[in-house]
Design a protein around this nucleic acid. Structure first.
Lengths: 106, 106
DNA sequence: TAAGCAATTAAGACATTAGTTAAATGTATA
DNA sequence: TATACATTTAACTAATGTCTTAATTGCTTA
């Protein structure tokens, strides 16, 4: 189940912070690591987990690897779950469908 | 940070399923446990964690303990995080504020 | 090819989580 | 009080998660 991996990915504060950083702009693995107190390998594992969950994508660019956020997947999963739990939130539901129809439009 | 406990609580499939069950109706601890393959003590720990996170509330009723969902806290946290990550989703943002102003209205 | 930097993978230590069964606590009732 | 049932807590084991440092891989450039 895809939601399993996504919620597991979101269960870590550093990983949520990575997503917040990437919400503003693309960043290389090193740029991300420099924002945290932990080692680069630790960040690399977090990034790998986020990518497996489908929340970020990576692209090698020369000697760097650039990461970017997959907003659709994140927003769809969170709002989808919120609706499962809180189904009477009709207006929220409509807006989310609208949102989902955009392509990575953030 | 409150969001930490909430996302940690959501990182478990059984706990998300408990929330889904409670979204339809109040249930006693035993009724919840009967819906899962695991033991009652295991479910009791899941419920305790959900309550610590503020996602459910409990009330002793005679010899039973009845659990109910705190929809506000769940929806606010999820949509709040989604907006932090996806701030340009203006319409979604507006609807959520409307939703938040209702009291447990689900 | 060799040297240097970016990033990932490997190996291992440590803490946390999630389940089990057994015991304890709380309430209802004979 | 004694018994029964619902629930939680305790004690323990097994599995997972998250770091660390060291080694490896990949690209760039001299």
């Amino acid at each position: 189940m895809a939601a399993d991996r996504i919620f597991e990915a979101l269960a870590s504060r550093p990983r949520r912070e990575i997503l917040a950083y990437l919400s503003a702009q693309e960043l290389t693995a090193g740029e991300i690591a420099s924002r945290f107190a932990m080692s680069a390998p630790a960040i690399s594992r977090h990034l790998s987990l986020l990518e497996t969950a489908g929340l970020v994508s990576s692209e090698r660019r020369g000697q760097y690897v650039v990461y970017r956020l997959n907003k659709d997947n994140l927003v769809n999963t969170l709002t989808g779950f919120a609706f499962e739990i809180c189904p009477t939130a009709g207006p929220l539901k409509r807006e989310s469908r609208k949102l989902a129809s955009r392509k990575q439009g953030g």
